[in-house]
Design a protein around this nucleic acid. Structure first.
Length: 358
DNA sequence: TCTGGGGTCCTAGGACCC
DNA sequence: TCTGGGGTCCTAGGACCC
């Protein structure tokens, strides 16, 4: 018997949930995003496999998707509550498997920690349990740690499974680009390439001091380990505790006057405050997220003089921040974030574990 | 051609204290 | 005239993920 990490990832989750309640859409290109109107300013949340065949994918502006989409494509609005409900059913089904520890890492994915001789059998049981409970399909990555399990899932899609361990890591991943690694985005890929590091194997063999000099003491070490597929193996089912809440809104027209911006800030800050207040925790910081034309996103924040549970204090702080915006440039408000005091702040020994990078 | 909304963590540098 | 060393806190910004 040995310890395994399974990564369960739902296949085209949002689109699948929509098709489930509208069976007549099965087999058609389904695109979910924004209010479901492809002429509005919004992006694609999920596209069904049929839509992906036309080059439509997550994060793409709806207007672009509309241009690529065939005649029979269907655009649907995002329905958060429906996905949350489906997510709940999926997680409940997986939790009911004997002997597993479950760590939720998103709406449509989680890690399972298990001790077994036959991880493939458990993967199959997980798929069957989810299908029986929800009619939804998922893929499973099997690994000897979280990094390998997570990456393995892609090789199992759709509806399949794949095992990735120290044994086959370099054989499977060695010649792939660093961008394939979970936690390496476009910026880090570029910086690595600047050091002549293009592949996973090159990253694994890279000079540790050079990486530390480039990325700092933690990230430098982390990236090198990532190249070897090394990562945490402990699956933690401690309930997740949010550190902050934010509200963002896509304004169909850019806000132009200070008065418009202030009104919007007041509204968004109020909502963000409400989300924190609903948890009964005071707010310690506020942040504004804006976009300067043409496409430069900035966030900036300010600590409140003291933790507060007063709505007016939070809104006033956000308005003050908004007053510091560079009005010489065309600016677009994206959102307001309120950061909360952690429930156990001031007692590091008993700090609530929060979800880390993995 | 156009660019979501919800989050987390890490780094660098300055202020300040002893 | 030259300019410690260590620690903590805060701010600002960057990067990544789903």
């Amino acid at each position: 018997m040995s310890d395994w990490v399974l990564h369960v990832d739902m296949d085209q989750f949002i689109a699948a949930v929509e098709v489930l309640r509208r069976p007549e859409l099965a087999g058609r290109p389904v695109i979910v995003g924004g209010g479901g109107d492809p002429t509005e300013r919004a992006v694609v949340s999920t596209a069904s496999y049929e839509a992906r065949a036309f080059g439509i994918g997550s994060g793409m502006p709806l207007k672009i998707a509309a241009r690529k989409a065939p005649e029979d494509a269907v655009f649907l609005p995002v329905d958060h509550e429906a996905y949350a409900a489906a997510s709940h059913e999926v997680m409940a089904a997986l939790r009911s498997l004997p002997g597993v520890v479950l760590e939720v890492i998103g709406w449509d994915e989680c890690f399972l920690g298990v001790t077994t001789d036959d991880p493939e059998r458990l993967a199959r049981e997980a798929q069957e349990a989810v299908l029986a409970a929800t009619d939804l399909h998922c893929s499973v990555g099997i690994g000897d740690n979280k990094v390998r399990a997570k990456i393995a899932t892609d090789f199992g899609k759709p509806r399949g499974m794949f095992r990735l361990t120290a044994e086959n890591w370099f054989e499977v991943m060695g010649e792939k680009g660093t961008r394939e690694l979970w936690g390496v985005g476009p910026k880090v890929q570029k910086r690595l390439a600047g050091h002549g590091i293009e592949t996973v194997r090159q990253l694994a063999d890279a000079d540790e001091q050079a990486l530390v000099a480039e990325f700092g003491p933690r990230m430098g070490i982390w990236y090198r380990e990532l190249g070897s597929g090394i990562g945490p193996r402990v699956v933690d089912d401690t309930p997740w505790v949010a550190r902050s809440h934010s509200r963002e809104t896509t304004y169909q027209q850019n806000l132009t006057t200070p008065t418009e911006v202030e009104a919007a800030v007041i509204e968004l800050a109020g909502h963000a405050f409400d989300d924190c207040a609903a948890e009964g925790r005071p707010v310690i910081r506020v942040h504004l997220k804006v976009r300067y034309a043409p496409f430069e996103t900035k966030t900036f924040g300010r600590k409140l003089p003291a933790p507060t549970a007063e709505r007016d204090d939070v809104v006033a702080a956000a308005v003050t921040l908004a007053g510091t915006l560079d009005t010489d440039r065309e600016v677009r408000l994206l959102g307001v974030r309120a950061e909360m005091a952690m429930p156990d702040d001031g007692d590091p020994a008993e700090r609530t574990p929060v979800r880390g990078r993995i």
